[in-house]
Design a protein around this nucleic acid. Structure first.
Length: 196
DNA sequence: ATACTGATGGCCT
DNA sequence: GGCCATCAGTATA
């Protein structure tokens, strides 16, 4: 499999999001490799998307979304969890794809250790869980996934069936069906849309 | 099975 | 002060 290149990310965010499904997310820490197939994502854009961090323009947190596509955007959520995104579109045109769930492929023992659990099940079926499993935190914010040795994405080998829904955990922008899942994959997040 | 809640911090009004 | 791109635990059925 080939690593995803810059032009892949420099497109309309929902298209990038759909095509990230089935790709392999790779995390390398020294000699160790942890990887998983991307099975659930969400697209976030800019001034047309009230659910996005970049809706009201660039802030210290969201500045990365306004920069070059293909970079890692990691933010701290609910005071407890890190969430992983890849930036999209062009400079000045903000966008990012949130990685919501993985199907573990390599380094399962390491994931178990990082998660601090005893069982193998449900290691990466949520955005906060997969960052913990892959040891991803704010120190990777801004990393260039096109050139990084620590965190990158390999293209998919086979076509996947995709279904979509409203995004999870947001109250505005629910009209967009910008959450994408690999149809029938058991590793997608189990939480259902809140009705707040 | 669903429903609610505490933890905990950054960002917004 | 209120609102979150969350999760694990507890309570209730």
């Amino acid at each position: 499999m080939e690593r995803l290149v810059r032009p892949f990310f420099e497109r309309y965010t929902p298209s990038v999001a759909r095509e990230l499904l089935g790709c392999l997310l790779v995390r390398r820490i020294g000699a160790k490799t942890i990887s998983g197939k991307i099975v659930e994502v969400e697209a976030y854009r800019g001034s047309d998307d009230p659910a996005s961090h970049s809706f009201r323009g660039a802030t210290k947190r969201s500045a990365i979304m306004f920069g070059e596509a293909g970079h890692v955007y990691v933010f701290f959520s609910y005071g407890n969890h890190w969430c992983l995104n890849f930036t999209t579109e062009g400079k000045g045109q903000p966008g990012a794809v949130l990685i919501r769930a993985l199907e573990p492929v390599e380094g399962v023992e390491e994931m178990v250790k990082n998660r601090g659990v005893s069982e193998e099940g449900r290691l990466t079926d949520g955005p906060g869980k997969l960052t913990k499993a892959l040891s991803i935190d704010g120190s990777l914010n801004g990393e260039d996934a096109v050139t990084s040795k620590r965190l990158y994405v390999l293209g998919r080998e086979a076509q996947v069936r995709i279904s979509s829904s409203a995004r999870i955990g947001i109250s505005k922008g629910r009209e967009q069906q910008w959450r994408y899942l690999v149809e029938g994959n058991p590793f997608v997040s189990k939480r259902v849309t809140r009705s707040r």
